[in-house]
C-alpha cells in the first residue's frame, strides 16, 4: 500500500473532523440518560462528568499533597501550601480578618473553577465517542451563573442575617442628598443585580472564546494542509497561532478563576460592611 496515499486520506479525514465546527466541542452529550419528560432532564452528561473530574482531581491532589505533613514541605505539599496561602492572603486583603469564615468557600470556588478551566485544555483522544471528549464546564453560562448566584446569594443571606434590614443601606450610599435618593437607589439596585450576570458572563465568555479561537485556527491548519502547494507551506502560521493561544489559555484559566474568586471576595466584603 502506498504510504503517501494513506497520509493524504488521513489528512482529509482530519480536516473533515477539525472543520466540523468550532461549537461542537460545547455540545452537551448525555452519558446516563435520566429524563422525566416535561422539560425535567437530570441526565448525567459530559458536563457532569467533567465537573466530577475537576472535583476528583482537587480531592486527590490535596489528599495526596497533605498525606504526610512535613515541617519542610516537599514538592506536592509545597504547591498545596502555596495555593492555600495565595487564597488566604487574597481573602485577608480583600475582606479583612473577619473574612476568614469565607475562606473555605472562596478556596473551594477558586480550585474548582481553576481545575475546570485547566482540565478543559486537555486534548481529546481522536476517535472516541463525543461523550468522552474533553469538556470545559465553565464554558457554559449556566454553570458559571449558578456559581455566581451562589456567591451573591451568600452575600444577601449573610448580610441580612448579620445586619438585618441595615443591610439594605447597601443601596443607600452615604453622603448623597435626599432628593437624589430616588435616582441613586434604583441605580444601586441595578448594579447589585448585574453583579452575578457580569461575573458569570466574564468567565463563560473567556472560556468559550478561547476554545473557539483554538478550534478555528485548527480548522485553518487542516484546510491549508490539504489545499496543497504554497498553501500547505503557510499552514505553519496558524499552527504557531494555536500554540500561542494555547499558552495564553493557561494564563486565562488561572486569571479567570482568580478574578471570579476575588470579585466574590469583594462582594462578600459588602455583606460584612454594607454601608459605604
Amino acid at each position: 500500500m502506498n504510504p503517501a496515499f494513506d497520509l493524504t486520506s488521513w489528512l482529509f479525514s482530519l480536516a473533515r473532523g477539525v472543520a466540523a465546527g468550532p461549537m461542537e466541542q460545547f455540545e452537551i452529550v448525555p452519558i446516563v440518560p435520566l429524563s422525566f419528560g416535561d422539560g425535567l432532564d437530570l441526565s448525567f452528561t459530559n458536563a457532569s462528568l467533567w465537573m466530577l473530574i475537576s472535583l476528583g482531581t482537587a480531592l486527590l491532589f490535596f489528599t495526596w499533597a497533605t498525606r504526610r505533613s512535613e515541617l519542610v514541605p516537599g514538592g506536592a505539599q509545597g504547591s498545596a501550601e502555596v495555593i492555600y496561602e495565595f487564597i488566604a492572603k487574597m481573602v485577608r486583603d480583600t475582606i479583612g480578618e473577619d473574612g476568614r469564615r469565607f475562606f473555605p468557600y472562596i478556596f473551594t470556588l477558586f480550585v474548582f473553577v481553576f481545575l475546570a478551566n485547566l482540565l478543559g485544555l486537555l486534548p481529546s483522544t481522536p476517535g472516541t465517542p463525543a461523550a468522552l471528549h474533553t469538556f470545559t464546564p465553565t464554558s457554559h453560562i449556566i454553570v458559571t451563573f449558578t456559581l455566581a448566584v451562589l456567591s451573591v446569594g451568600i452575600v444577601v443571606l449573610y448580610g441580612l442575617f448579620k445586619h438585618g434590614f441595615a443591610f439594605l443601606r447597601l443601596f443607600v450610599p452615604s453622603g448623597v442628598p435626599v432628593w437624589l435618593l430616588p435616582l441613586i437607589t434604583p441605580i444601586e439596585i441595578i448594579s447589585f443585580l448585574s453583579r452575578p450576570v457580569s461575573l458569570s458572563v466574564r468567565l463563560f465568555a473567556n472560556m468559550l472564546a478561547g476554545h473557539v479561537v483554538i478550534k478555528v485556527f485548527a480548522g485553518f491548519v487542516a484546510v491549508l494542509i490539504v489545499s496543497g502547494g504554497v498553501l500547505s507551506a503557510i499552514s505553519i502560521l496558524p499552527l504557531i497561532g494555536i500554540v500561542g493561544v494555547f499558552i495564553l489559555e493557561f494564563l486565562v484559566a488561572f486569571l479567570q478563576a482568580f478574578v471570579f474568586a476575588i470579585l466574590s471576595c469583594i462582594y462578600l466584603q459588602d455583606a460584612l460592611h454594607p454601608a459605604h
Partner: peptide, 9 residues
C-alpha cells in the same frame, strides 16, 4: 523545592 512547587502550582 519551593520554586519548583510554585511553578508546579
Amino acid at each position: 523545592k519551593v520554586a519548583k512547587g510554585r511553578t508546579a502550582a
